[in-house]
């Protein structure tokens, strides 16, 4: 990935649009907890969305502490990943999507994950958004740049 902001933003957008899954990190009383979630992103990359059942541990965690991290990467689980894969860590705060925005965001989410329609529309499922503060973009194993969102 280059060091040029427009290029990095494009690469970032491509990764966030093509990768279906992300690892969501939450915590409770200092105990970290990681979960795999299906996610989508807003067009300006400032928001990431995921859906979860309200009875889950991750949902309980974010209700107590809204700070989360999300890992999105393009690994193929082969040694070549060290040169070819990109890993992005997004940090920010999360909350359930406001009711007036829910329909629009749900449409965006299901456009990427149509097979999750009945899951996401279940009354027990919460649609959440992460307001991203920083993306930490790691390429070639050790190169890291920070993309801050104002």
């Amino acid at each position: 990935m280059s060091q040029d902001l427009p290029e990095i933003r494009n690469d970032l957008k491509k990764l966030l649009r093509t990768q279906p899954l992300a690892v969501l990190s939450t915590q409770q009383d200092g105990q970290p907890y990681a979960s795999l979630v299906a996610f989508a992103c807003s067009d300006d990359l400032a928001r990431l969305y995921f859906a979860t059942i309200r009875s889950t541990r991750k949902f309980a965690n974010i209700m107590k502490d809204s700070r989360v991290a999300m890992l999105i990467d393009s690994r193929s689980n082969a040694p070549a990943d060290f040169q070819q894969a990109t890993a992005v860590t997004a940090t920010g705060k999360t909350a359930e999507v406001a009711p007036e925005e829910r329909n629009g965001i749900l449409a965006l989410y299901l456009a990427k994950h149509p097979y999750l329609e009945s899951f996401a529309q279940s009354p027990t499922c919460a649609l959440c958004e992460v307001r991203v503060r920083t993306y930490f973009v790691c390429t070639r194993f050790q190169n890291v740049v920070e993309v801050h969102i104002k």
Binding site: Q3, D4, L5, C138, R140, N143, V144, V147
Partner: peptide, 18 residues
């Protein structure tokens, strides 16, 4: 310069350089 580091509500900063 290597490229723009500010714009469109984003800013770029190097964190780890190899």
């Amino acid at each position: 310069r290597t490229g723009r580091t500010e714009g469109g509500g984003f800013s770029l900063k190097s964190r780890q350089i190899v």
